[in-house]
Simulated scan of single mutants.
Amino acid sequence: MRTCVVSMVAADSEGPNDPGVRMFRRERSIPLRGSAAALCNNLSVLQLPLRNLTHFGVVHGPSAHLLSAAPEGVPLAQRQLHAKEGAGVSPPLITQMYESDGSVMVYWHALDAGDASPVQAVFARGIASSGHFICVGTWSGRVLVFDIPAKGPNIVLSEELAAHPTSVTDIASEPAQGQDCVADMVTADDSGLLCIWQSGPEFKLSTQIPGFGVPCTSVQLWQGTIAAGYGNGQVRLYEASTGNLHIQINAHARAICALDLAPEVGKLLTAAEDTFVHIWKLSRSPESGYIEVEHCHGECVPDTQVCGARFCDPSGNSFAVTGYDLAEILRFSSM
């Protein structure tokens, strides 16, 4: 096993930790009717190239803002999705699924509070698709696996994965790389524990990576490599098949709130409460097979607690950022 530690904690833009060469410029922002809540990973992006549209999703209080925009950032439509009322279930205990434009709710599921005490929060957190399954993390540490049919609204809860002792924080997946794929989904929790799964008719737990007393707030998968962001500002890269640590990056001065990966080129996007967004280039050495990391770009969003960041295309040529109490989505594109 080879472990490498890389320090890159951003401070003042004119100091010795200057983010470096600028590769992206700020574009026209997209206005929101509300603002972004202070939640990790509080931005979703869905690109629809055939329609020349990009959908953005942001959570604000008990509702979600879903909007579509043209490539130049002009907002075309915006919806506010509220938690379903009725059926004797309170809104915080609901998981809902919509069509991509938010026009139709196709399914809702009541969360089981179980033995939760009256003062214990009950919530769903972390979501990812794996094949024809959608996996949703919960406050109890369970992961709900929904089977999504190719056509029609006949969605069913197929199983519940119980491997986390604390609340799930994030879930990531990537398409299986053939029959011998060791892992195609990873789940993280508040203790920092990572669980690696093989999906199929039944999900199988293949590896666990112990935590070290710091929450893992965001995870991503890329070519069998796990990128994990933590509450102490570190990014760690693990081999999914073995759980071995490859590289530790001291990337931020405060807690990381979002990670994203551009799968076509291996760019890693990290964002944190220190107001900085960084972009890193991941590559695998052809000689040794080890993962190598290069810092490509740093962006400061002044006086803003960043809470979400996502690439807007699979090549990593543009990205978007949200911030707490910020009534706009900031956009950046390559120069």
Rank of each mutant, 00 (worst) to 15 (best):
V6G: 00
R22D: 07
R22L: 13
R25W: 10
R25D: 14
R26M: 05
S29M: 15
I30S: 01
S35G: 04
L39A: 08
C40I: 10
V45N: 04
Q47W: 15
Q47R: 11
T54P: 15
H55N: 04
G57A: 14
V59H: 09
A64S: 05
A70S: 15
P75F: 02
H82K: 13
E85W: 07
P92E: 07
L111Y: 00
A116S: 13
I127A: 13
A128S: 13
S130P: 10
G131F: 10
G141F: 00
K151H: 09
V156S: 15
P165R: 06
T169R: 09
D170N: 12
A176T: 05
Q179G: 03
I196G: 02
G200L: 02
V214E: 13
T217Q: 02
Q220N: 06
G224R: 01
T225N: 00
A228R: 05
A240S: 08
S241V: 01
T242Q: 01
H246D: 11
Q248G: 07
I249N: 00
A253S: 15
T270H: 01
A272C: 05
D274A: 09
G289N: 03
Y290N: 06
E292R: 11
E292S: 14
V293G: 12
H295I: 06
A309R: 09
C312A: 05
P314K: 04
P314L: 07
S318F: 08
A320G: 04
A320K: 08
D325F: 12
L326R: 14
L330P: 10
